[in-house]
């Protein structure tokens, strides 16, 4: 299941690896928020970090950006150790935290100039950098407005703008589309896809379709661990082994469905639709079709569950993984 991730750590020192975290843990008092997590990211990849609230996503991102020191483990950014040489490593990172760090008393232009200066953009390039990032984030005519007076959606855009204006190799976005309307969400997703070109992007989110729309790889966190880390394609394969969507005109009692060999659980989605958990080894599809014909269930639709990611997510975070 973790094939891609382990390949990643094998080539940990290559130039293409931008983020390499080895067995990082983070303790808050007695509470272990993140435990022995490995994370590897290559140039041109978008990693989506998923997990229920309190799974350790934000803590992980804070460690990757040098805002929190890991209690154990090591992190390197573009081959530079983040703990030993924080200033050099941070040059390669752009970070949008959960709450965009905006000075309410500054205007958009003043704030972006400040952020650019803090990230070491040369004085002569400031106007060009600020103008180009404003165009990319759809902030064209807001330059003279105070940050405190902007709507949540625009504040979020300014937050993204400050994370990407210095052209970092690694862009870390903590819930980038929170508070945006659907059109703005699509724009931001487009922006993230464009960012991927020659960078790495890590984003955390609650929104499952967002991961399917923009990410190459998915990491699912649960109780401080990465319980799943693989490509979207691998996720497809995996989810095919997890759930079937079945629609029947004359459905029998749920017990009858559960009795079909290979069905592990039955969930009614309405009067006629069911979500069947299935065994990874025994495919019950044929058996369901045969019984439907024999017992006149009136089968009119059968196939893998529609939201594959949701299925995997629920499966993995429902209880402690056996591994």
């Amino acid at each position: 299941m973790n094939k891609r991730a382990s390949e990643g750590s094998a080539i940990g020192s290559s130039a293409q690896t931008t983020v390499h975290a080895r067995r990082i843990s983070r303790r808050f008092g007695a509470h272990l928020a993140v435990r022995e997590t490995d994370l590897t990211l290559c140039r041109g990849e978008v990693l989506g970090l998923l997990g229920p609230n309190g799974a350790g996503k934000t803590t992980t991102l804070q460690m990757l950006t040098g805002n929190l020191a890991p209690s154990a483990g090591s992190i390197s950014i573009c081959g530079i150790d983040l703990v030993a040489r924080p200033v050099a490593a941070k040059r390669h990172i752009g970070y949008l935290p959960e709450h965009p760090p905006l000075y309410r008393e500054l205007t958009v232009d003043e704030f972006l100039r400040l952020a650019a200066k803090l990230h070491g953009v040369a004085h002569a390039r400031l106007p060009a950098v600020v103008d180009s990032v404003k165009a990319r984030c759809g902030l064209g005519d807001t330059g003279k407005r105070l940050l405190g007076a902007l709507s949540k959606g625009y504040q979020q855009r300014v937050g993204i703008a400050q994370a990407i204006l210095h052209d970092p190799d690694v862009v870390v976005l903590d819930e980038p589309t929170v508070g945006l309307d659907p059109i703005q969400m699509r724009e931001i997703r487009g922006l993230i896809r464009a960012l991927r070109e020659d960078r790495s992007v890590i984003l955390s989110t609650h929104i499952l379709p967002e991961v399917e729309a923009v990410c190459d790889r998915v990491g699912i966190m649960h109780q401080g661990r990465v319980v799943f880390s693989d490509t979207i394609e691998a996720l497809d394969e995996l989810s095919r082994g997890l759930a079937l969507h079945v629609a029947l005109r004359n459905p029998p009692a749920q017990d009858a469905l559960a009795a079909v060999p290979g069905v592990t659980r039955v969930e009614a989605l309405g009067a006629h639709q069911f979500l069947l958990g299935r065994d990874a080894t025994a495919d019950p599809t044929e058996e369901i079709v045969q019984r439907s014909v024999a017992q006149a269930w009136g089968l009119y639709e059968i196939g893998p569950a529609r939201s594959r990611l949701e299925e995997v997510f629920v499966q993995l975070t429902r209880d402690e993984p056996a591994a």
Binding site: G66, V87, K90, P101, R104, A115
Partner: peptide, 14 residues
């Protein structure tokens, strides 16, 4: 309180 410290801590400055 305004969670703006992150901007400074994430920037390449000591």
């Amino acid at each position: 309180r305004n969670r703006t410290m992150t901007l400074l801590v994430s920037a390449p400055i000591s």
